[in-house]
Design a protein around this nucleic acid. Structure first.
Lengths: 233, 233
DNA sequence: GTGACTTATAAGTCTGACTTTTTGATCGCG
DNA sequence: CGCGATCAAAAAGTCAGACTTATAAGTCAC
């Protein structure tokens, strides 16, 4: 999925990153580079590189004569894909999935509206193909096949929006959809209404109907919010 | 605003980051660590730390026997605050401002809706104060005072939404608003309609009217899009 | 031309010495 | 006794140099 063992410092990050984002070191905790280097059995240079990366993610701050201080969550670069992965793999995965689902509910309808205006014929075809793939896998517990097409569908929408910030959320949406499938409805077939909505979105985008694409996508995301019991009373 | 001269490697980044994001090194360009270290007159260790940070931002990839390769824009971590600042300071500032404004138009209405449900009395008071400050500075070319309250207003909305991903966009919105003021309407008073909308949003949030808060905020962001000539035909 | 082998290259790693900043303790003075 | 200036220690920061490792690319035999 990501970039595994890219050197020793990467190995260190694979351990330290999840530990920090999981809250094992409460905000304000002080670490020392030398001690960490010993603990991970690497040289100080390697350890320093790892700390620099954590620093650029705003997970820690390094100050002379003090050490490496763990920063509070409010400082973290929560959009960093690496940070997102670490948090999804850790203790506050549910919380993280909620945040990301709310984010989706804001972004995707707007992206769909833009896609209706900007999608190339190739993208429209791809979208239709994805929707058909979802239909084909929507019955008989073919959840894996369904998931693949679902992810591809949303990725095309985000890319076709023409906005680079939206496009970069493709991986995040993939994570959320995967997490959802693997935790809740693993044994149920997907909601037929949701499948229909995806087909209709594909049609609306192809027809260039921005308003319709936006509203239909909003219905999809409302469904996602309801699954997590996030809704207005 | 950000974190200036935090060591030698930071100094290097202040030059290399903007250069790369400005496209001075086209995607695929290969840099060598040793050469860079010489050019910036720093040791290899310092240069390596800088490269590691650029790597974690996905601006470059480092491979043995090849060198440090500049990655295409599609790989960049475009949500990294540092990357955003570098790009806003560089050549594709206009493009970046457009992307961010579209992002705002997706996020802020949803954030306002949530804020209407979740804002504390203190946050409501703060919001009203900001709106009043905007009114007070809306005439007579008091743009600086207006901008301060405008930024504070949107920051409170994003924070009060209770979503950490939204909250972290406060700085981005601040950048966009500042950029807008300092480039276009520097000499014109702000649109009275926009000022009124902000006051109404504050009222809706205080009243707990999520739908109204969301729709009013959408009107605000539509205005922002129109200023940049981003609109559906 | 194809495949195995060799080589040159640039990143990666480690070590140890030295510098700089900053905290907190100590000391002198009012 | 309190307070400010001074000093020492601690930890990050920097540097230089030697060595290792992966690998792209060239070479040679078949």
């Amino acid at each position: 999925m990501s970039t595994p063992g890219r050197g020793l410092h990467g190995r260190v990050l694979d351990t330290l990153g999840p530990a920090i984002t999981a809250g094992e070191y409460p905000p304000g905790s002080v670490l020392r580079t030398d001690e960490l280097a010993q603990r991970f059995d690497v040289s100080r240079s390697v350890m320093r590189e790892a700390v620099r990366v954590l620093e650029s993610m705003r997970l820690v701050a390094s100050r002379r004569r003090v050490g490496v201080t763990v920063l509070p969550q409010t400082e973290w670069n929560v959009y960093d894909p690496q940070v997102i992965r670490w948090r999804l793999a850790g203790a506050d995965r549910p919380r993280q999935l909620r945040s990301l689902t709310v984010l989706r509910s804001a972004i995707e309808p707007v992206a769909a509206g833009l896609a209706a205006q900007l999608a190339t014929p190739e993208q429209c075809a791809e979208l239709t193909e994805c929707a058909l793939g979802m239909v084909a896998n929507s019955r008989g517990r073919r959840l894996q096949g369904y998931l693949v097409h679902d992810i591809a569908f949303h990725r095309v929408i985000l890319t076709a929006s023409g906005n680079e910030m939206f496009a970069r959320l493709g991986d995040v949406v993939a994570e959320v959809l995967t997490g959802r499938t693997h935790h809740e409805v693993m044994f149920e077939d997907p909601d037929p209404a949701a499948v229909t909505l995806h087909v209709q979105v594909a049609e609306a985008v192809r027809a260039g109907d921005a308003d319709r694409a936006e509203h239909l996508t909003r219905e999809i995301t409302v469904g996602a919010l309801q699954e997590l019991d996030i809704l207005a009373p």
